[in-house]
Design a binder for these strands. Structure first.
Lengths: 341, 341
DNA sequence: TTGAAAGCGATACCAC
DNA sequence: GTGGTATCGCTTTCAA
């Protein structure tokens, strides 16, 4: 491997001088600088980030850990984070925890071991607490996005889940729906809880009864969603509409209903959060509380860098809630009848 | 930061012993091992990968650089790569070049600088040649996937673009289409060229005339696709079907046609490559030459690790072509009339 | 304007 | 079984 010493020897200067040329520090004669530059070119020199990081005690790298790299919401978050990191002079490292506590742990260990300057993370769930505490103990700045974790008080960027649920349920109620189910993700995840909370509040606000049998938790596995669909259809008072906890659940439910010959929105309306990048091509187009995914990433990186560079007050975590907007699609319609199919 | 010396002092042993405990090397008494382990726990020790990599001259990290992290095809590739890397004992670093030569260069510089053990890369285009040559000179093993680059003879995993085009065109011809356009990506990218090649071969095989005015190149920007749609509709002999170079182009064209009130497949059939993860939810479902995205990643990592570990013959690059399969959707139908709308 | 030496955190090699 | 020492590639500090 080519090192600064190779360059130094070839250019007949000291390693120190080479280092100065690379980093543009100190005073160097133009002649020497040119000579060194030329040798670096010739030898295809690429600085060793490890050696550099070791002495500088920083890497210039930020890490983004998301829970599902195949979810368009998170890839858009990644785009926002990447652009922001780049413009602030940092590189971005992407990781995928797959909603899995073990993978999350492995990734965090790797990240800490790599000594990145900061971490942007979507926690897999409440159990992420212990992993986040590891990060805290290690002293690496971090920001949570999309989800928060009880017991961890840190900078974070979240969406307005409660408000989103309210808007969606209000809209359904406005259409005349009176029996509305919730199929959400595991309550081990903060967004699922908040969306449930908004759901309950909105039901109350619209004078609709709450029925716990209409609240289902599903993982993102197809069989869960099939089961949820089945269960709702056979409920004694079957719902005419469903609030799906996120885009993936909405898709799964839609598929399940289609397979059972249930028309959406004819027989069942579906509303949800987040979109797919190409929302207008999915038929029906979901009525959605659209969150600013790109902003989640961009804002998160901004907070992270503020923290790294000490611009944030050290004691007060920055909490940032991004608003969503209701987009009406064709997955919703007036209920066919009151509570029965 | 906690180092092995801190551990050593606290546990009243030498740094060497701590290192041995960490790496499970050499003979150590169970008592000492336990003592050291306990101190590591207490102090939340996380090994410094930089220091480690510096002396070991390897990192255990593989890098995957794709051109569009928001394209479901590539996120599935990433999934395959991640799983394979994990099972082979490597970590995976994800990067996104955004189809941009400059970003690609920056990423490669960072990757080389990080001294990853190997690189899996989807080249942005033929101009990637110089960047790949940089990697060659640097001596880091790499494998290209999805696309190949003229002048670079290396391990690679590609799809059967020519065969895919043939199948798609044959299918259209079988439905009775006689005027079929091609809207492909830039010919600076190998897949676009191969798909064009397959298109021409298939036209000839089906005794259909070739008309160069029906061959358009588009970037993945919406305005390009709008322009392409416009141009095809106003052509003297307008096509009744289109082979879209990839999934993104197919989507863009579909949207453009819809906006113009053109029914797909009623007035225009569309076929393409790759899918969207949730293919069956997009209406119409595209008739597609589906490529095994997950395998692209998994196979690529396999080749890469074989190369790293010296299992591949050093002189002969491993070339691997993965087959695609034709999936009939609802984006295709019989032509309305012969060549005119 | 340039260079020598120390040290970042870890491991390999050689003693004991 | 365990410890000392040199070393990986680079930057910082201090001299010249």
């Amino acid at each position: 491997m080519v090192t600064i010493y190779d360059i130094a020897k070839q250019a007949d200067v000291s390693a120190m001088t080479v280092s100065r040329v690379i980093n543009n520090t100190g005073r160097i004669s133009e002649k020497t600088r040119e000579k060194v530059r030329k040798v670096m070119e010739e030898l295809n020199y690429v600085p060793n980030a490890m050696a550099r990081g070791l002495v500088l005690q920083k890497t210039g790298i930020l890490s983004l850990l998301v829970t599902d790299i195949t979810n368009p919401f998170y890839t858009t978050v990644a785009r926002g984070a990447e652009d922001a990191a780049r413009s602030l002079g940092f590189k971005l490292l992407l990781g995928n925890s797959d909603e899995d506590a073990n993978k999350e742990k492995e990734y965090i260990d790797m990240i800490l071991s790599t000594r990145v300057d900061g971490i942007l993370i979507t926690p897999a769930g409440d159990s992420s607490k212990e992993r986040l505490e590891t990060i805290v103990r290690h002293g690496t700045p971090f920001v949570t996005i999309d989800r928060d974790v009880p017991g961890i008080d840190c900078d974070n960027v979240v969406g307005d889940s409660i408000g989103g649920s309210r808007k969606l349920i209000d809209y359904l109620a406005g259409l005349g729906h009176r029996v509305i189910a919730l199929v959400g993700g595991s309550f081990d995840v903060s967004t699922a809880r908040y969306r449930y909370e908004g759901y309950r509040e909105a039901l109350a606000a619209n004078d609709l009864p709450y029925d716990e049998r209409l609240v289902l938790q599903a993982n993102y596995r197809m069989q869960d969603m099939e089961a949820a669909a089945e269960q709702l259809l056979s409920a004694s008072s079957a719902p005419t509409a469903i609030l799906a906890g996120n885009n993936m659940l909405a898709l799964g439910l839609l598929q399940s209903f289609r397979r059972r010959g249930i028309d959406v929105p004819g027989q069942m309306s579906i509303v949800t959060f987040d979109d797919f990048g190409h929302r207008d091509l999915i038929d029906p187009l979901f009525t959605t509380a659209v969150q600013p995914a790109y902003q989640f990433g961009a804002r998160g990186i901004q907070l992270l860098v503020d923290r790294i560079e000490g611009k944030s007050s050290s004691s007060t975590p920055q909490q940032c809630m991004l608003p969503n907007s209701l987009v009406i699609g064709s997955s919703t319609g007036v209920p066919r009848s009151n509570g029965t199919l």
